[in-house]
């Protein structure tokens, strides 16, 4: 590969990286937001309440993300009713389809992480909170969830890195993310390996930066501890 060809692809890949990061940021935030009610319902003692998140998690963890993405993007467009409804302006856009699918997908994984963390909150703390007269929802809001969030942070960070890598599939629905840009470049320069390796370097750089940001956050939330608690998700 000539240096010219290499230097020419860098700005294109960089703009692809921006789209990748936008998708990642959106799905990490929305996914977390969706995961909280899912996790709460999942730990519920009422079987019918925990059945909904169980089914949801079963589906999203048991099928490939690519199938989920095609179901949302190509699948929903099959129906006249969907195409004429108010959601179509959103579903029409490949970006929103990817953002929605990624959010739903990652929410399933994050909710399992949160469930693990909620169940790991020491019983004594909950009993103590009840003993000083806190109501059930107060216990959740002031004791269990803040504790669980802190414990879940390392695994949540892990999930964000996994989503970064999974987001490469956005390229299969016309999005010009990092991988989509690399595919288009390689279809013009006929140097697929060199192009994909360069794109890979971008992903590694993003992973490196994200890992450090997450570590910084962990330390910030655990001022009393040097090593954060590790939870195996």
């Amino acid at each position: 590969m000539t240096w010219v060809a290499f230097l020419e692809m860098l700005p294109k890949l960089a703009s692809g990286a921006v789209l990748t990061l936008e998708l990642l940021f959106l799905s990490a935030c929305v996914g977390l937001f969706l995961a909280v009610p899912l996790a709460l319902a999942r730990v519920s003692k009422r079987w019918w309440l925990s059945l909904i998140p169980r089914t949801y998690i079963f589906f999203f963890r048991g099928t490939p993300l690519l199938v989920q993405l095609f179901l949302v993007y190509y699948g929903l467009g099959q129906f006249e009713a969907v195409r004429e409804s108010f959601v179509w302006p959103v579903l029409r856009d490949a970006f929103w389809c990817a953002a929605i699918t990624f959010s739903l997908h990652t929410a399933a994984y994050i909710s399992e992480i949160l469930r693990g963390a909620i169940q790991a909150v020491p019983v004594g703390e909950i009993e103590a909170a009840r003993a000083i007269g806190m109501r059930f929802h107060q216990v959740y809001i002031s004791v269990i969830l803040p504790r669980a969030f802190r414990m879940a942070l390392p695994a949540y960070g892990n999930e964000i890195i996994l989503m970064l890598k999974a987001s490469a599939l956005a390229s299969t629905i016309t999005l010009m993310d990092l991988t989509g840009t690399a595919k288009t470049i390689s279809s013009i320069n006929y140097m697929p390996v060199e192009t994909f390796v360069t794109a890979g370097a971008f992903y590694l750089a993003i992973t490196y930066v994200l890992t450090h940001v997450i570590r910084f956050l962990e330390r910030h939330l655990h001022p009393d501890r040097k090593e954060p608690v590790m939870i195996v998700g």
Partner: peptide
């Protein structure tokens, strides 16, 4: 301009109105 991996997928999206 939207680029598709297969022509079939481009037609699917034309039919769905994207």
């Amino acid at each position: 301009i939207k680029l598709y991996d297969t022509q079939e997928n481009a037609y699917l999206d034309l039919a769905s109105g994207r």
